[in-house]
């Protein structure tokens, strides 16, 4: 299905947030996830299902002031 990952269109076969992260090569990355603007804790990624058109945000530590 087609979803949006960090603002870019992606075609994924995964049906959960956890599987999508693995598919994107981010299974072991230090990241936090949000689906359609709502935080998805690490422990909930396996059970959080994806639907076509979903917006997935994958954020990592970055410089800040």
């Amino acid at each position: 299905m087609r979803i949006e990952v960090n603002g870019e269109a992606h075609e994924v076969t995964s049906t959960t947030v956890a599987a999508a992260l693995t598919e994107l090569g981010l299974a072991d990355a230090r990241v936090a996830t949000a689906l359609n603007g709502t935080f998805v804790p690490k422990a909930a990624r396996d059970d959080t299902r994806l639907a076509p058109g979903d917006r997935l945000e994958v954020l990592a530590p970055m410089q800040g002031g």
Partner: peptide, 19 residues
């Protein structure tokens, strides 16, 4: 030290290690 979160670009872990 103040830090932030931004879209994953592959540099996150290295930055976190420095911090």
């Amino acid at each position: 030290a103040t830090v932030s979160l931004r879209r994953e670009g592959g540099q996150g872990q290295a930055f976190w290690d420095i911090i």
